[in-house]
Amino acid sequence: LVRYRTISKIPQITLNFVDLKGDPFLASPTSDREIIAPKIKERTHNVTEKVTQVLSLGADVLPEYKLQAPRIHRWTILHYSPFKAVWDWLILLLVIYTAVFTPYSAAFLLKETEEGPPATECGYACQPLAVVDLIVDIMFIVDILINFRTTYVNANEEVVSHPGRIAVHYFKGWFLIDMVAAIPFDLLIFGSGSEELIGLLKTARLLRLVRVARKLDRYSEYGAAVLFLLMCTFALIAHWLACIWYAIGNMEQPHMDSRIGWLHNLGDQIGKPYNSSGLGGPSIKDKYVTALYFTFSSLTSVGFGNVSPNTNSEKIFSICVMLIGSLMYASIFGNVSAIIQRLYSGTARYHTQMLRVREFIRFHQIPNPLRQRLEEYFQHAWSYTNGIDMNAVLKGFPECLQADICLHLNRSLLQHCKPFRGATKGCLRALAMKFKTTHAPPGDTLVHAGDLLTALYFISRGSIEILRGDVVVAILGKNDIFGEPLNLYARPGKSNGDVRALTYCDLHKIHR
């Protein structure tokens, strides 16, 4: 019993810090008490220290592992850092350059016999395009090294910054494609005289377009951006097909006994025919423009016929181009109408809503002055909100995010209106959640004399007048207030005048 009563005193000691020596009952000389009392004092002292730490809000209350900052290894790049964003855009520009100039170089340097010394005699450094290609190869190699040090988000939505895990993730992902696209074939085969082989191998750079397509997928929600990307894709495919079309004609031209190829026909049409040795002929500019003209006309199913396939190889390629053109029509131009419709969806919704308003007016036989006010209010409210119901949009977000959005939407009023000066951010967040926005066209009466005042109004834009009878008592403008002081009276009061809008007004109100 003594032991039980001794232990039962522990909660009292913990909360009230009572010393055991003052209790005459606990001072009985028993061996059990002498053993338990020192333990009680020690526990009391420890609990006292913990309570003191909690009340003082000291940093040592938290466990040590929670006080440590997340460790980022040296030379690790955050995937959302500004440097990584700028670097990704730079790589994107280099990939676009590669997609345009690599097929052009591979096709127009394929057994090209233009006048001038061969590239091997001039030297590697004197070729501007080769120098640019070398810079692109170096940048792609540097990009691989950067990807080995860039964080990523795993399946659990955690940012991984450990170098080993980053390397394994990159090896399992895009490393092989990036490595093949970054191989400097110019340096590996330079001086061997195989410019045709170098041009063909350099087309491996186009593998990076797969990554670019995935990154550009984030802009699919913007109709104008999608339309622009589709047109660029169409032009890029036409450019690639033009390079292939020229390569076919250029390879067949020296081996044909009869002059029936499209390059021969082009030379005869523009007065620059090929001679018996295969030299001469149109310039590279004429060849490229004509090839691009043929691919565009074939892809769009126009086909004027002034550039036509004559050999079997050219006919087979033309059939493939027609098939590609039909697929592009289905996948690209078939979506253009939907994209344009999405661009004008706001206008369509406006006309639909206006039609419903006019049908309501016609069905209920609203008189002319009231009908005009109804239409003007709808037009003004639509121009202010673009038909978007803010309350319906915010309803799907958590309250903390709703408060931040409301604070942002009402920031101008909260910053410049005098009653809100000096208020804490928590108070402003709470008030912003209570605001209701209303609009009024010129001549609209917001409050009639004798109406119950259940709200306090803040003028965000425009001006109003307060009338008693036919006498203008006051004219209020931006950041002015009218209405009933909230919670100042037990019952809502009545208006002693009319409140009429002089201009288009936007008002925020808080109800009782």
Rank of each mutant, 00 (worst) to 15 (best):
L207D: 01
A381I: 08
M251N: 08
G280C: 01
R211A: 01
T113G: 14
H169F: 05
L323N: 01
P367I: 01
I361T: 03
T76W: 01
V142W: 01
I361R: 02
P103Q: 01
E158T: 10
H73N: 05
L129V: 04
S276Y: 04
G443A: 03
Y124H: 01
L299Y: 01
Q402N: 01
N275D: 04
R358T: 05
M256W: 03
L187N: 15
G199W: 01
T437L: 12
L197W: 04
K215V: 03
N368Y: 04
I340K: 03
T385R: 06
Y124T: 03
P163A: 13
F363D: 01
R371C: 12
L394Q: 04
P70V: 06
L230Y: 10
A125H: 04
H162K: 10
H79C: 01
S276P: 05
G422C: 12
P254H: 03
G116N: 03
G305K: 01
T290Y: 01
M179G: 11
S194V: 15
L201S: 01
P309R: 06
N275K: 04
T311Y: 01
L355Y: 06
L230A: 05
A247N: 01
S345K: 03
R74V: 05
Q379W: 04
R349D: 15
S105D: 02
L93S: 05
G261T: 03
G267K: 01
F108W: 01
G280F: 01
G249T: 03
Q379M: 04
E114F: 11
V180W: 11
F333I: 10
A338I: 15
Q353F: 03
I198P: 10
Y246K: 01
F333S: 03
G305H: 01
S337Y: 10
Q269W: 01
L145P: 01
R349Q: 04
E252F: 01
F101L: 15
H364Q: 03
L216V: 14
V393M: 04
Q68I: 06
L327H: 01
H364Y: 04
D444R: 07
A235E: 01
V160L: 01
A440G: 03
L299A: 01
V168D: 06
T437F: 12
I388Q: 12
Q127T: 03
L263W: 01
